[in-house]
Simulated scan of single mutants.
Amino acid sequence: MKAAITLYDALVSANVPADKAKDVVEAWEKEMNDLVTQSYLKAELKELELKLTLRMGMMLSAAVGIMIASMRFML
């Protein structure tokens, strides 16, 4: 909120009409709400890494199982 007030004051002091300055501040606040933090991105990346590791492990174990089963039929 403090940054929004500072931005509004800066716009008004730069001779931007008050209603236009208010519109700019509201648009800026909307955009700021959509931003994500670096820690959030790191947490999401770790979660995706875990999911990928588990999927790769399941695929590897399935492939080994298929190979062992096919070797038994060959013998």
Score class of each variant (00 low, 15 high):
Trp28Ile: 02
Ile66Gly: 09
Ser39Lys: 14
Arg72Pro: 00
Lys46Asn: 12
Leu75Pro: 00
Leu48Thr: 10
Val12Ala: 03
Leu52Pro: 00
Val24Thr: 09
Gly57Phe: 13
Met67Ile: 15
Lys2Glu: 12
Asp23Met: 12
Ser70Cys: 12
Leu41Gly: 11
Ala43Ile: 06
Asn15His: 10
Glu47Gly: 11
Met58Glu: 12
Ser61Asn: 12
Ala43Leu: 07
Leu60Asp: 13
Leu41Asp: 12
Leu75Asn: 11
Gly65Cys: 03
Glu47Trp: 02
Leu35His: 04
Leu11Arg: 06
Arg72Ala: 13
Met1Leu: 12
Leu50Arg: 00
Met67Tyr: 11
Tyr8Met: 05
Leu35Gly: 01
Asp23Cys: 04
Ser13Gly: 15
Leu7Asn: 03
Met58Gln: 08
Val24Phe: 10
Thr37Phe: 01
Ile5Gln: 04
Ala62Pro: 00
Ala3Ser: 12
Lys2Ile: 14
Val24Lys: 05
Leu48Arg: 10
Met1Pro: 06
Gln38His: 09
Val16Gly: 02
Asp34Ala: 11
Leu52Thr: 09
Ala63Pro: 00
Ala43Cys: 01
Lys42Asp: 14
Lys30Pro: 02
Ile68Gly: 03
Leu45Gln: 10
Met71Leu: 13
Ala14Tyr: 09
Ala62Arg: 03
Glu29Ile: 15
Leu35Asp: 01
Ser70Val: 15
Asn33Met: 12
Lys22Cys: 11
Ala18Lys: 14
